[in-house]
Amino acid sequence: MTLLKIENLTAFYGASQALFDVNFTINEGEVLALMGRNGMGKTTTISTICRMLKHRDGVLEFAGQDLGKLPSHKAAQLGIGLVPEGRRCFPNLTVEENLIATARPGHWTTKTIGAFFPRLTERRSQMANTLSGGEQQMLAIGRALMTNPRLLILDEATEGLAPVVRQEIWAVIHRLKTETGLAILVVDKTLRELRQVADRAVILEKGSTAWMGSMTDLTTDLTDKYLGV
């Protein structure tokens, strides 16, 4: 079943157009990789899905509901959980407070999050701004899960982290996929890990969908052409 549907999406920052023609869908339980070089519109697309940026034209539906007129908090309440680029935990709240502040009823509670991220349990009374980058990232994921989303969006979740910590985050994403069946939209630059975790991929080029297909169909020619790797 289609969870998120985006068709011919356009969006602007003031007068300058950032998204021209974005198209893709995400099904329940699917992991979709959103790819593209820097400045191609990945984060803008995510901001539009989360209603932090209003789109101008096109279709944007979540679970059959038009997101067009909804404010950001309503989109989140429908079940869109965002792990933002740069983590952005609430710095002067403790780990536990970060989680409790955003909690909504469902499977994910401080207890289940603690079981999923034992490190967060160890650090539960520590201020978020005193955590390491990896721990902050876990907290950002935990905080998004506490909203009990149907779709989890991870924007550059491994950026700026040490290689060992990156592997931990990828392991978490893999566990989320296999153990929870949560739909995940993941934006990242590390192709190798994306290949392991994602079912399908969408490549953005200059604010438009340039390619969409199964991860297994993503050939070296395509990655060379659109991702420059």
Binding site: P91, N92, E97, T102
Partner: peptide
């Protein structure tokens, strides 16, 4: 307190 620290983020988590 979360609202004070980051209003946009607070909205993005459904508050």
């Amino acid at each position: 307190q979360a609202t004070r620290q980051n209003e946009t983020r607070t909205q993005a988590v459904g508050l």
